[in-house]
Amino acid sequence: MMQGRFLLAVLVLLPAAAFADGYPTAARADYVLGCMASNGNTRLALEKCSCAIDAIAEQLPFSRYEEAETALRMQAAPMGERGAIFRDPPEIRRALEELRQAQAEATLRCF
Rank of each mutant, 00 (worst) to 15 (best):
R93E: 03
M74R: 10
I53Q: 09
F6H: 10
G34K: 02
Y23T: 05
V12Y: 07
E97P: 01
A102D: 02
I56L: 01
A37K: 15
D88E: 14
E58V: 07
M79W: 07
E98D: 10
D88Y: 03
I56Y: 03
P61E: 05
Q75I: 01
A16K: 12
A18V: 14
R28G: 08
A76H: 11
F62S: 02
R87I: 01
L96E: 00
F19Q: 15
F86R: 02
R87V: 03
A17I: 09
L33Y: 12
P24S: 14
A104P: 04
G83H: 09
G80H: 09
E58W: 03
E97D: 14
A17N: 13
L44N: 12
E91I: 11
I53H: 06
M74L: 07
E98G: 02
V32W: 08
A26T: 01
A68V: 01
C49E: 00
S38F: 13
I53N: 02
Q103I: 05
I56H: 02
A18Q: 06
R82P: 03
N39L: 15
R94I: 07
E98Q: 01
R94S: 02
P89D: 10
M79A: 03
F62P: 00
C49L: 07
S50A: 15
A9R: 13
V12F: 10
P90R: 09
M36C: 10
M74S: 07
E69G: 00
L96I: 08
E97W: 01
I53M: 08
A20D: 15
E66C: 01
P89G: 11
I53F: 09
R109Q: 09
L8V: 14
L44P: 06
V12K: 00
T70R: 12
C51R: 04
F62I: 03
R73W: 07
A9G: 13
A95D: 05
Y31F: 11
D88P: 08
M2P: 13
A20T: 14
A27P: 00
E81M: 15
K48L: 11
E69T: 00
R109N: 04
P15W: 03
L8N: 15
E105P: 04
L60H: 02
T107G: 14
E47F: 05
Q103V: 09
G22S: 05
T25L: 14
F19P: 14
P15I: 01
A20C: 11
A106N: 09
T42G: 05
A57I: 11
R28I: 06
E66F: 04
A106D: 03
R100I: 04
R64E: 13
S63F: 03
